[in-house]
Design a protein around this nucleic acid. Structure first.
Lengths: 95, 95
DNA sequence: GAGATATTTAGAAAACTATCTAAATATATG
DNA sequence: CATATATTTAGATAGTTTTCTAAATATCTC
């Protein structure tokens, strides 16, 4: 898992909103774009960042390109965070 | 919880390393700085970002300023992520 | 209180990011 | 195959972030 890529991807509010939007299921770039006041080109850039972080998957469906969440990496992220931040410090921490 | 501040803070590798370094317990700015090839001024900037995100706490101890993790916000973050990324979509999700 | 050590603040330079417009590529359809 | 629609790529610009050096502030010790 590319830790840096993932955190960088999550650091932008538009990208987090895109992820949120995808919770309901896969959507085409255009469908997602409809919710944002941003050009298709900029949106495409955000998709590229999310893809690079492996947070979303793409699939061409005819004319459209359909995006969906990659929940596997999401789990990794949660685990990584837990590891980074020991909420309840237990005896044998990695010091 | 200031979501944007937290994600922004986590997006930098140096800051994540600082958090990691603090897992073992509170440390002064100087002690932390010893591990990084960066000037005290730059380090201080990173501390400011972490503090702004409420990820660390500070306490002056005489001449030194001692930093420690704020695990409360860390838990918030983990929860927020879980919310954002439904790893295993269960029936009654928040939609 | 003068000098030493620890940390922060101010101001500037370099690197990076988000956004835009214009052009390119890919697919669908008449 | 020409045109329309969907998306990406290229190149530019504005804004933000990281880092530095120099100076300021705070505390300690003699």
């Amino acid at each position: 898992m590319k830790q840096q890529e993932v955190f960088k991807a999550m650091a932008d509010p538009t990208r987090r909103a895109i992820l949120k939007r995808l919770q309901g299921g896969a959507l085409s770039a255009g469908e997602i774009g409809a919710d944002f006041d941003i050009t298709p080109a900029s949106l495409s850039h955000h998709f590229a960042v999310l893809k690079q972080a492996d947070l979303v998957r793409t699939e061409r469906r005819g004319q459209y390109i359909v995006y969906s969440l990659n929940s596997t990496v999401f789990e990794d992220l949660a685990r990584m965070l837990m590891d980074l931040f020991p909420a309840t410090p237990k005896s044998g921490g990695k010091r």
